[in-house]
Amino acid sequence: MTEERDTRLRDWLAAATGELDLRIAGVSRLSGGAIQQNWALEVECGGNLHRWVLRTDSPAVLAVSLPRAAEFALLRAAHDAGVTVPQPLFLCEDPDIIGAPFFVMRRVEGQAQGHRVVKDATLGGGRAALAAALGTELARIHRIRPPREDLAFLGDPPADAALAAIAAMRARLDAAGTPRPVLEWGLRAAELSAPPPVPPVLVHNDFRTGNLMLDASGVTAVLDWEFAAWGDGHADLGWLCAKCWRFGNIGQEAGGLGPRAALYAAYEAESGAPVEDARVRWWELMAHIRWAVIAADQAARHISGQERSLELALTGHIVPELEWEILNMLEEG
């Protein structure tokens, strides 16, 4: 950040906190976030040092992600529902302070990086305990149900979340313009086997290894709420369990972190409702299709010149392995 921007940010935070002597002792970019930027803030005020995170948009924003104000409201709703999230503190919708709207939340310690956390069997008190903790978190998220005035930006829930997901993927494929027969094959099979609708709940929609901050005691934060929507809670269980999100540790079916059975058992205990395994598996097929569509769209940002980046370019090359896995799933199923 530039010096001028730091000054504007300091003044804004001083007004938001009411601490006129507030001083920003440090600003540094945190890792991760192709869509959002996260900055670590060290802030001194009232004689205390606060460790916060400032979250704002990257230059090229995916059209499907929610704006910062919405993400802030979701964090609040989740926090109130007992979900382990970083406590949301302040929202700034004025784009002129730092160049884009942002919000500030408490900084949480832990590890999130997918390739690292799947290798550490001690996180969360062991694999079964960690999978159980994830089940509890998800059940709490799914306790948030429509209608909710504070989450009105989510719109009306879809009449049928499964068919809506298929339609959304087809629309994105059409918008991208590249014919992808293998993904179409997967979508058609999904359409023919779609489970009947269930009452809608809040679906996080990116609840997976890499977006879960963990430490030795368990989950320290569920991150990245920008894709949340009303839908079928099994979609979250499927996204977490999908093989493509196990970071190579495929034997641990709950996100490469722990056993599926412990995840389901804790989810059922917290929610009081049974997990329908076949429904979760259906959403795992959709997870592979969705990740392929997202990966192709990310590569398109590089190809179009919107954001030239080797990382985005290589993300496109994940699509073929997802297609391969989709065909395997359909043959096994």
Binding site: P181, V182, W185, H317, I318, V319, P320, E321, E323, W324, L327
Partner: peptide
Amino acid sequence: LRQYARLRAAVSA
């Protein structure tokens, strides 16, 4: 589709 997917995966992954 399987042959096509195999060729694509053979390059990318």
